[in-house]
Each structure stands twice: as structure tokens, then as C-alpha cells.
Nucleic acid binder design. Structure first.
Ligand SMILES: [Mn+2]
Ligand SMILES: [Mn+2]
Ligand SMILES: [Zn+2]
Ligand SMILES: [Zn+2]
Lengths: 159, 159
DNA sequence: TTCCTGTTTAGGAATGACTCCTATCTACCA
DNA sequence: TGGTAGATAGGAGTCATTCCTAAACAGGAA
């Protein structure tokens, strides 16, 4: 999916982000793949054209793009493993504020299936549904609007 | 949910795991909470009764319990953030072998809702469905049975 | 255009969650 | 009861990410 320079410029400006060559290159690399790359993979990619770019810039930029909503983190809460001894089939509600995880039993959700096309291409052994939102405590402490963006993570470069 | 010492012993034996006080304490702590704790939270908890326990033991034990199937890791692939510039609503297929992430568009999955009870307790702003399995390449390279357990992660203490 | 200022960048140091290594230690079966 | 594979403690190492800082620069103001 080719992406015009001006297109990128517009999207950045719309979010109040300065347009720099590094930033545009990182965003372009991400927008032109469907592989859901890591920060390092993007760094390796972009570094070919900008050999002096710092890995740090990639982290900083991805953070900025994410905070601006231009990019999503697929595995959002990928820090610290979280364990569960409850082996019965169930799903979870995740609080984006305090990272609490609440069990959610719902037989309907257990029965979901991927479309036939993917079931053939992929040997699927299970699935998981995750609802994201704010628990009562976090909702109370943030009298914001109804729709909001996830909190920055605990360890987070200043916005 | 009180858990008898013998109950733990039986579960461990059934999986061929040696029964040690540390291991039983860690498993008990995890089985008696619904909070989906981190390794460190479990360490802090268990350390009260076994002050000389090493954090390393907690990691080792959780790995063993997980490999035995006695425990689940809720946020399975929590290493390295993975990014996505595709902002349209969609879900993912995750290969447990090579960690590839494949897009999956399915309007049915977009429409899922949590039960009313949780919708009231939690301010839900979105959800995500993740199918887990093995991609064609990984399936081919592992002529195993149809149901199998996820691969150990790249960086993984020897089983 | 030129200047000013708040961002952004590069790079190096620090962090935190693990993972590796190794010398004991011990549960468990013979 | 003893031998041994597997477990524990603890110290060192790793890796993704974050923190810190000085220099570079984008974009609005003049
Ligand atoms: Mn759970
Ligand atoms: Mn995607
Ligand atoms: Zn919360
Ligand atoms: Zn694969």
C-alpha cells in the first residue's frame, strides 16, 4: 500500500506531530507492511535508508504515534507475565488504568470460530477474547469523557 | 478457594512434578487468588512464609507449572511490543510457533459484547479476539498431533 | 526570510523482568 | 537407605525499553 509523502504529512499535522524524515520513514515502514513488526524490526528496516538513526528514536516515535492514535500496539500489555491457575475456559476484562484483570465466563465467547478461510490456512487450537476498559475505581478517579484512549503504561517516556 | 495439601500433591504427581514446599506454596498462592498476579507479586506473597526463597525459583516454578499445563499465562506473548498501522477494526491470528500475526477481518467478531453484569461494573471501550494456532509453515515443520501445547518462548529456561 | 523555542534526535547510561550458570540440596524410586 | 534426576539459591548476564542530556531542527512568529 503505497503511501504518498503528503499523505503522511497530513496525518501527522492532523495530530499535531512534527514531520521529520525519521518519523515519516518509521510510519511509512509500518504502514506498508501487514507483519505487525517489533520496534527492532522497524529499526532494522528504516536503518537501511537512515543509517544514523538511533534505536531510541524508533521507540520514541512509536510511542508518539501510539499516543497520537496513529498506530496501535497489538499486544498492548506485554510487560510482566500474568498467571492464572483457573483452567476452565474463560475470558478476561482488562482495566487500562490499573491493569487489573477480571475473569469473565461466557459460553458464547467460548464458541467463536475463525472464518473457514483462515481455519484452513491456520491450525487453530484456541482463542481468547479480551475486553478493554476501566474498572469502577479507575473510572471514578478519572472524570473524563466516555471514550478515551488507554493510559500510558507505568513505565512510559514523558508524553 | 481453600486447597488441601494433598490436592496439590496429587495434581503435581499427575504431571510428574516433584512436590516441594516452595512449589506448593507458589501454586497455592496462585490458585487461591483471582487477581492474575505477576511473578513478582507471587514472590512477595510467598516470601512471607519462605523468606529465603529466591525470585528465580518463582520464575522457574511458574515455567514448570505452565509447561505442565497446571497454570496459564494470561498475556501469553508479552515480550516485545508489536505494532500495527491498520486502524480499521480487526482481529488477529497468532502463530504459537513463529509468532507471526495475521490480520483477520470479521464483522461478527467486532460486534461481541460482554454480559450486562460486567458492562455495568466495567467501562468497556473495546475488545479484541485472538486466535492461537500454527501457521502452515510451522505446522509443516512439526509433524505432531493435532492438539498441542504452545512452543516455549524464544528466551526460555530449559524445560 | 530569519529567528526563537519547544520538539525531536542520537547516544550512552540505567532499569526491570526475566534468563543463564553453577554449586548445592532434596524428593522420590529402587 | 542411597543414588540421581530434578529443584533451589544466588549471582551474573541479556534484552527490550526507558531515562538523561546535549545538539539538531521543524514550524510558527516577526
Ligand atoms: Mn482468568
Ligand atoms: Mn493487524
Ligand atoms: Zn482499574
Ligand atoms: Zn508459524
Amino acid at each position: 500500500m503505497k503511501l504518498a509523502e503528503d499523505d503522511i504529512r497530513q496525518r501527522f499535522r492532523a495530530c499535531g506531530l512534527k514531520v521529520t524524515p525519521q518519523r515519516a520513514a518509521i510510519y511509512r515502514a509500518l504502514a506498508e507492511t501487514t507483519s505487525h513488526p517489533t520496534a527492532d524490526a522497524l529499526y532494522q528496516q528504516v536503518r537501511r535508508r537512515y543509517p544514523m538513526m538511533s534505536p531510541n528514536t524508533v521507540y520514541y516515535t512509536l510511542g508518539a504515534l501510539r499516543d497520537a492514535g496513529l498506530v496501535h500496539e497489538v499486544n498492548y500489555w506485554h510487560d510482566g507475565a500474568r498467571f492464572d491457575a483457573n483452567l476452565t475456559s474463560h475470558h478476561h476484562l482488562v482495566c487500562l488504568g490499573c491493569r487489573a484483570i477480571v475473569d469473565l465466563m461466557d459460553a458464547r465467547l467460548d464458541r467463536l470460530a475463525a472464518p473457514a478461510l483462515q481455519r484452513r490456512a491456520f491450525d487453530i487450537i484456541g482463542h481468547r477474547v479480551e475486553f478493554h476498559g476501566y474498572c469502577a475505581a479507575c473510572r471514578a478517579s478519572k472524570p473524563g469523557t466516555t471514550r478515551r484512549r488507554p493510559e500510558p503504561k507505568k513505565r512510559m517516556r514523558r508524553a
